[in-house]
Computed example of a mutant assay.
Amino acid sequence: MSELKVLDHLMLADGELFHNSKGRACPAPRPLAPVADTHAHLGSLHGHDPALALARAALAGVRMMVVPIDPVAEFPRKWTDAAALWDFLDTHLAIARDCLDEAADLGFVPPAFDGWDAPGLLGNVRIVAGVHPYGAEGFDDAAEALMRELLASPRCVGVGEIGLDFGPYNEVSPREQEECFRRQLRMAHELGLPVELHIRDGVDDMVGEAHALAARVLAQEGVPEAGCDLHCFTSDTRIMEDFCRLGCSIAFGGASTFSRSEDIRDAARVCPERLMVTETDSPYMAPVPLRGEECEPAMVVFVADMLAREREAAGVAPAAQTYAALWRNACKLFGL
């Protein structure tokens, strides 16, 4: 790859990783500790090449990425079988390594984190596997067999994303969703794995029902001893507290940076330090100042920066303490 192509694909000639829709540079925050993207749909990117997204994430300071894989929605639409998925990951990781090597020759390298025993990102890309509530009707024996194959991989660190979605785009009945949710929770207990939850409330007369039912199911089935996180948290402090009492981690993403998301930031300021993690949910909900762009895993550094600044401004904890907690929590949640 020529010098021009390396710079064109990883960053522009100004050396900045991020630019808004008008081409203006949006300088990336410099993380005070390694950063984790605990939920990134690497196989769903459209405007970003997966390999280049991996390389850019590494250059931004990301040292862990967890990719959710859905045995109903993504097979065989994206991958024919588990072997095809592993080949997809291996191929893009190899290309990303080459890109980082060439970028290093040009003087661009991932940030160092002195005092942290954190692996490089490309050796720390993991998966979780689970059936999204959209696909609950398709969770048959074949899907379960594939899911178990994925969960048995050494790459796999959890079950997810699973849960309940009573939003306007899901036509699966609440009863079928709950049954699928419970089956997968039991698998997580059986295999000693943590879970990532997708919970979306409905509107009008169903406001709050998905979170209330999910909390009830977790109380009945038990939160897996290995852990649990509430993926893509977009609710308020009251709902956060319900899940924190159950021992669930709270995953903050791009939505927490939006101007109208003060409820989410209020929750972030008071969230127990031991229960906070970061994510992107790429390719969805790019954070400010890149809102409106396709989200990519590298953008998680803006989320971590916002959380650290908000908690420091509120007198909760110094920024460095929040950064350290976010990294340690992600490592603990996924046993890494």
Rank of each mutant, 00 (worst) to 15 (best):
T234W: 03
T234P: 10
S235Y: 14
D236L: 10
D236P: 14
D236R: 13
T237E: 14
T237C: 06
R238W: 02
I239F: 00
I239S: 00
M240T: 08
M240H: 09
E241Y: 01
E241V: 03
E241L: 05
E241I: 02
D242L: 06
D242M: 06
D242G: 01
D242S: 14
F243M: 08
F243N: 07
F243W: 07
F243C: 12
F243Y: 13
C244H: 05
C244F: 00
R245F: 01
R245W: 00
L246C: 10
G247D: 12
G247S: 13
G247Q: 04
C248W: 07
C248S: 14
C248L: 05
A251D: 13
F252I: 08
G253E: 10
G253A: 14
G254K: 07
A255H: 10
A255E: 12
S256Q: 07
T257M: 13
T257L: 13
F258D: 09
F258M: 14
F258Y: 15
F258Q: 09
F258W: 12
R260N: 14
R260A: 10
S261I: 07
S261K: 06
E262H: 13
E262R: 15
E262W: 03
E262F: 05
D263T: 08
D263W: 04
D263M: 12
D263L: 11
I264E: 08
I264K: 04
I264T: 00
R265P: 07
R265T: 03
D266E: 15
D266C: 13
A267M: 09
A267P: 06
A267N: 06
A267E: 05
A267F: 10
A268G: 12
A268T: 05
R269G: 08
R269W: 03
V270H: 06
C271D: 04
C271V: 10
P272T: 00
E273Y: 00
E273C: 01
E273G: 09
R274D: 02
M276T: 01
M276L: 12
V277P: 07
T278A: 13
E279A: 09
E279H: 09
E279Y: 04
T280R: 03
D281H: 06
S282G: 06
S282K: 00
S282N: 00
P283Q: 02
P283Y: 04
P283I: 08
M285S: 02
A286F: 10
A286G: 07
P287E: 03
P287H: 03
V288R: 07
P289M: 05
P289C: 05
P289I: 08
G292M: 02
E293Y: 00
E293C: 15
E293V: 08
E294Y: 04
E294V: 13
C295I: 09
C295W: 00
E296M: 12
P297A: 08
A298Y: 11
A298G: 15
A298N: 08
A298Q: 00
M299T: 09
V300N: 10
V300F: 13
V300E: 04
V300Q: 12
V300S: 11
V301L: 06
V301D: 02
V303G: 04
V303Q: 07
A304Q: 01
A304K: 01
A304V: 11
D305G: 03
D305C: 04
M306E: 05
M306V: 09
M306P: 02
M306I: 04
L307E: 08
L307K: 10
A308R: 02
A308P: 11
A308L: 02
A308G: 10
E310K: 10
R311E: 08
E312V: 00
A313S: 15
A314G: 14
A314I: 12
V316I: 15
V316W: 12
